[in-house]
Design a protein around this nucleic acid. Structure first.
Lengths: 297, 297
DNA sequence: TGGTGCAATACCCAAAAGGTATCGGCCAGT
DNA sequence: ACTGGCCGATACCTTTTGGGTATTGCACCA
């Protein structure tokens, strides 16, 4: 049961000459002879017919030659693929992100990662912050792109981008035609907020702006996620406060407007488990870091 | 490229515990840890995630586990099959025989061999003595069953059986109805002999009997092999002198009769190259020896 | 019958693998 | 927070295995 012996055996089987095989294996002839003898002893089988000046393979030797070639090439493949996955050039990376990240820098970041590591299988899914946290802890995902950042101390994090908040308004809203919108004037508006759960969450960031601007919204409409909120805005239910980047994607019935007043902004942060040092994860975080530097500069 | 390490790796991958894996491998834990570390160093890849109390496989580790299982089972199969072929329980045995052997003891001998070694593939073919000799020397066959024995000193031989000669007559022959046939009375008969080439051969054995009985056949008909000779007999061309065993198979138009007079008999002998010590060959010769003892006794 | 080519053997040294003792880090239980 | 226990890693030594050089032994050839 030794691999080296198979390699030696194949060399002798191909050369049909111990001396030449030893040269090819870059070793002396006697140890080669001994290894072959040991292999034969292990098997209890003669592999070479040494009766004549010309060595020849026995039937058993031919059988072993066929198998040994397969075994060694399989082994080679095993090592190659393991290295690929182990260095992060292959394998799988499971990334989940908040819905509001699907329009801004994240797609570009992911494209950038793919250009460096085209053979890594990406598994993408959208979740809210609470689900992201759960999934990350349960190791159901490798990376979580959250807004705002997740609080857990067991996570490694990398800031992707900061952006200001803007208003998403129904296009028939009176506000849409004003030259400037002051947040403090929105007290009588219907605020479409998300997520409904868990609280505190992004919805509370918006409520905090209201409080700072001196009011509490007349009416709240809570949805589970960003996509639903925008849908409600588009049908005229009310306005929403969203990250600036989402305005890059136009949607019928919705217009985006900056506002005057307190603007805490919002940040997209990439998270991974501290104990997950998988090269795919580390590579993605490295690229995120470079990407963020370039973008913030 | 070390095989033991794969086995160790699989044990740890399955137990996810170095201590238990070491116990299962019947060794101490430290060398096991070191072998795994060496494997990881060889690959330049982490295979286990040791960050928590519970060890887990990395992605690369899972890939290697899958491959390692395959490699090891392939290796196992390689060893198993090589042993099978190497001990003569498997593989192939190429036997050629003279046509006149296809009716007597040879089929029984072959059946006997098959009952001991059912997994050996038998490749059977019929040849005359000269072809047998050639094929054996050229290693195109492993065993030659010849009549009479081949002269080459490079052959190992095993006597299968001796038998007396009898006459094969056309069934409408006048001779067929006689109570006794004396060979010396056959001088005016047409003798159907074989093989045409090479000479001297079996045909000369028969001519020698004629000479000893004091005549030279009035007419000779030479054919290439036993089968053709019997065919000519069956259509009334003449008589032939054949081994007794062929009479066990009846053929329309042919009757067999013993004769009085010189009867040198004939022997069936199994031959192999002296340098062919393949277990399949040795086993067949062993069985032939036992078989011959039993039959001659 | 000596010469040559090649695998096998003898003998020695270096490298690798295994064993025992021990360290160090991480939980768990008080 | 401290401590004991579990478990993998490290240190250090011993044994085993593999490789190298020199030489033998066996065919084949002239």
């Amino acid at each position: 049961m030794e691999f080296r012996r198979l390699k030696y055996f194949l060399a002798v089987a191909e050369e049909l000459h111990f001396g030449r095989a030893a040269t090819r294996l870059d070793m002396a002839q006697p140890p080669l002879s001994r290894q072959i003898a040991a292999l034969e002893a292990d098997l209890g089988v003669l592999l070479f017919d040494r009766s004549r000046s010309q060595i020849r393979l026995t039937q058993a030797g031919q059988v072993l030659q066929d198998h040994a070639r397969q075994v060694l090439s399989r082994l080679e493949a095993a090592y190659r693929e393991t290295r690929l996955v182990g260095t992060g050039s292959g394998g799988r990376l499971r990334i989940a992100f908040v819905g509001s990240a699907s329009h801004g820098l994240l797609p570009t970041l992911i494209k950038s990662y793919r250009s460096y590591y085209p053979d890594v299988e990406l598994v993408l899914s959208a979740m809210n912050n609470a689900e992201l946290s759960h999934a990350l802890i349960a190791r159901e995902i490798d990376l979580a792109v959250a807004r705002p950042e997740l609080k857990d101390e067991e996570f490694r994090r990398e800031l992707l981008c900061r952006e200001t908040l803007i208003l998403a308004l129904p296009d028939n809203s009176r506000l849409a035609s004003l030259p400037e919108i002051r947040f403090a004037d929105l007290a009588d508006q219907v605020f479409v907020l998300y997520p409904r759960r868990p609280r505190p969450g992004y919805a509370d960031v918006v409520l905090d702006i209201c409080a700072r601007e001196g009011f509490s919204p007349a009416k709240l409409e809570l949805t589970q996620d960003f996509q639903s909120a925008i849908s409600l805005v588009s049908v005229g239910v009310g306005l929403s406060v969203v990250p600036e980047s989402v305005s890059s994607t136009q949607r019928p019935g919705v217009v985006y407007r900056p506002y005057a007043g307190h603007n805490p902004g919002t940040a997209l942060t990439v998270h991974a488990r501290l104990d997950n040092r998988a090269p795919q994860v580390m590579n993605f975080l490295d690229i995120t870091r470079k990407f963020a530097r370039k973008t913030l500069a």
